Amino acid sequence: MANSRSGESVAERIVRVLETFDADRSAQTPSQIARRASLPSSTAHRLVSELVATGLLDRDESGQVRLGMHLWEVAQRGSRALRLRQAALPYMERVQARIRAHTQLAVREQDETLFLERLSHPAAVSNIARVAGRLPLHASSAGLVLLAFADDAARARILSRPLAALSPETVTDPVELDRVLRRTRREGHVVAHGYIEPVSTAVAVPVRERGEVIAALSMVLPRDAPTAGALDELRRAAAAIGRALA
């Protein structure tokens, strides 16, 4: 696609427009999109109009714009995420019903933890993860599992970067994080006390397809809750998901 004067392609600018939407900002005006995407107003208005015409965005009677149903439709066709979510959901529901805590499915995407599914319970502890939301790999239990079983280059890349603290107990020292990752590979699970919120403990296990770790299954428990039962349920569910995928 043709480049702009800044060297950006049309595709890159469209992605910037779409990425201005999130769970807390589901409807915007074209001017708000222009500002948040750091695009000239005329460019943003033109792209929005074209995306509305194709159904990737919808415009309501007040002039505000939302992500379109056609975008959702296209995203579902042949999606690896959809296949994994469909295989995992029955087993996640079983785990969540037994443990009555947040149960989550996540994958590694662009060196972050991307959550594909989350099942919650009214009595469950606080949890900031959202479906289609991201967290740093080093800060969540699912991310620690994904990073532990990632290739050497991915681990080295994360360990060489500054590591942000989401809570006072997030591991931000690369030497200590490397120890956590080695222990996770050795034990096949992780228990993270207060890494994101001091009130919670998160546990996670890998999900494998034909031996390769493709996802992580996690639960968020009250800080002092026992973890053995949750880990046993997660291991059984992860094994069942792997069989379903195979």
Rank of each mutant, 00 (worst) to 15 (best):
A154L: 08
H102P: 09
R85N: 11
R235P: 02
S167P: 01
L57P: 03
Q96T: 01
E61I: 12
V65R: 07
S26L: 09
H70I: 09
A11M: 08
S167T: 13
S26K: 06
G194T: 13
V17C: 03
R36L: 14
D58Q: 11
E19Q: 14
N3Q: 13
V125F: 00
E50K: 02
G55A: 10
D173Y: 08
Q76P: 00
R179C: 10
R36H: 12
A246N: 14
P30N: 05
E169Q: 15
R236M: 11
A11C: 07
E187H: 06
Q96A: 04
R235K: 08
P136F: 02
R83V: 10
L119C: 10
A23T: 05
P90D: 09
G55R: 08
S26V: 10
S140C: 14
P168I: 15
S200F: 00
L245G: 09
A148E: 03
V171F: 03
R36A: 13
V17P: 00
E169N: 15
V17Q: 00
R85Y: 07
T103H: 06
G188Y: 05
T227C: 13
E117F: 02
S218W: 00
P174T: 12
N3M: 09
L47F: 08
A164E: 13
R179T: 14
G68E: 08
L89P: 07
L114N: 01
H70V: 12
T43H: 04
A150W: 02
G68F: 07
A97V: 05
L56D: 12
R25Y: 01
M1K: 12
L147M: 11
P198C: 11
Q104K: 05
R185L: 05
Y195F: 13
A124H: 02
E117H: 05
N127H: 08
V190T: 14
H45G: 01
A124C: 10
M1S: 15
E109H: 12
S167A: 14
G63Y: 03
A81V: 06
I158Q: 00
L51A: 06
A230H: 04
L159C: 01
G63I: 13
D151W: 10
R155Q: 15
R134I: 10
S9E: 04
R25K: 03
G63F: 08
A142I: 11
S218E: 03
A165I: 09
G211D: 10
T113D: 07
A129H: 04
A150H: 02
P222D: 12
R186P: 02
P168F: 14
A215C: 09
V171N: 03
L51T: 08
R182Q: 15
V190K: 05
G229R: 12
V180G: 02
A216C: 10
R223T: 05
V107D: 00
E61S: 15
Q96L: 02
E109I: 01
P198T: 14
S167D: 07
S120K: 01
A239L: 11
V15N: 07
R223P: 09
V203N: 04
V213I: 07
A139Y: 01
A132C: 12
S38V: 09
R83M: 07
A240T: 10
G68S: 08
T113C: 15
Q64G: 07
R185G: 02
R235G: 05
L177P: 04
E8K: 14
P136A: 13
R16P: 04
L163Y: 04
G78E: 08
Q64A: 14
A139C: 09
S26P: 05
V180P: 00
R210L: 11
V180Y: 01
L116C: 07
V65T: 10
R35I: 05
L116G: 04
